[in-house]
């Protein structure tokens, strides 16, 4: 589903954002990407939604190859991927409902369908009662749930979460994690970048640890073998 081969990302001369990355991510996985600040977690996620292209190597997401994707095709890729951020990135001038609906409106979906799906998705993130609230009337955790709803409303096959709990209190962190697990249980792959090791240690899921742009630990090393065999 997502394959990354021999990928380097070099930002400036000799400064590696990522170095020699080989990853294979399967349908329905839940993965933590961990590591200290500046280790390349965000860079790795950006490669996946093609906000960034590798300097060397190849990234393949949902059949789109980083080496051959056209500018026009990027929106099509993004529609299959949900992305959430530490800072939520909600539009401050519209309420929760409209923020979620926005993701469908920009693709020209019919009005009736938008309404149905937005209401359903808001219910999934337990925010039906706050659908008319503007972002600044919502708590951090609630705002993150709105942004999760926006990412999910188009039923993506994968949800990329860049430090989704970085800006919320411990109680909301639990809620958000529980929500991500529900989402994963329904079949959507979730890739969550975080530097909160405590969160990760307790979980049984696959972990990819980065340090200075290199993978230093991948709890499913057997997958690496597979990539190696694939290429032979």
């Amino acid at each position: 589903m997502i394959q990354i081969y021999d990928t380097d990302v070099i930002f400036r001369k000799e400064w590696y954002g990522l170095k020699d990355i080989n990853l294979k991510i399967e349908k329905g996985e839940f993965i933590f990407v961990t590591g200290p600040s500046g280790c390349g977690k965000t860079t790795l996620l950006r490669l996946m939604y093609m906000d960034l292209f590798p300097t060397k190597g190849e990234v393949i997401v949902a059949g789109f190859h980083s080496s051959s994707i056209k500018r026009k095709e990027i929106p099509l890729l993004r529609r299959k991927i949900g992305v959430i951020f530490q800072d939520f990135k909600l539009l401050q001038d519209r309420d929760a409902f409209d923020n979620v609906a926005f993701a469908l409106q920009v693709t020209g979906a019919p009005k009736k369908q938008i309404k149905e799906r937005v209401l359903k998705t808001l219910a999934d993130v337990h925010l039906s009662h706050k659908r008319d609230s503007l972002p600044y009337h919502l708590s951090g955790g609630e705002q993150q749930r709105v942004s999760i709803a926006r990412a999910l409303v188009r039923e993506p096959f994968i949800l990329l979460a860049d430090e989704p709990t970085g800006n919320v209190d411990p109680e909301s962190t639990k809620e958000i994690l529980a929500l991500l697990k529900d989402i994963n249980a329904s079949g959507t792959a979730v890739i969550m970048a975080t530097h909160e090791l405590a969160l990760v240690k307790r979980s049984p899921y696959r972990k990819i640890a980065l340090k200075m742009g290199e993978v230093i630990e991948d709890t499913s090393d057997y997958l690496k073998e597979e990539i190696f065999l694939d290429k032979l």
Binding site: Y49, K72, I74, P75, L76, L77, R78, R79, V83, K89, L91, F102, A103, V106, T107, G108, R150, R154
Partner: peptide, 17 residues
């Protein structure tokens, strides 16, 4: 610009942005 960024993120094509 945040609006533009979000639009790009959710896969709006240029016409809509």
């Amino acid at each position: 610009r945040d609006q533009i960024e979000i639009m790009e993120l959710v896969g709006a094509n240029n016409k809509f942005i």
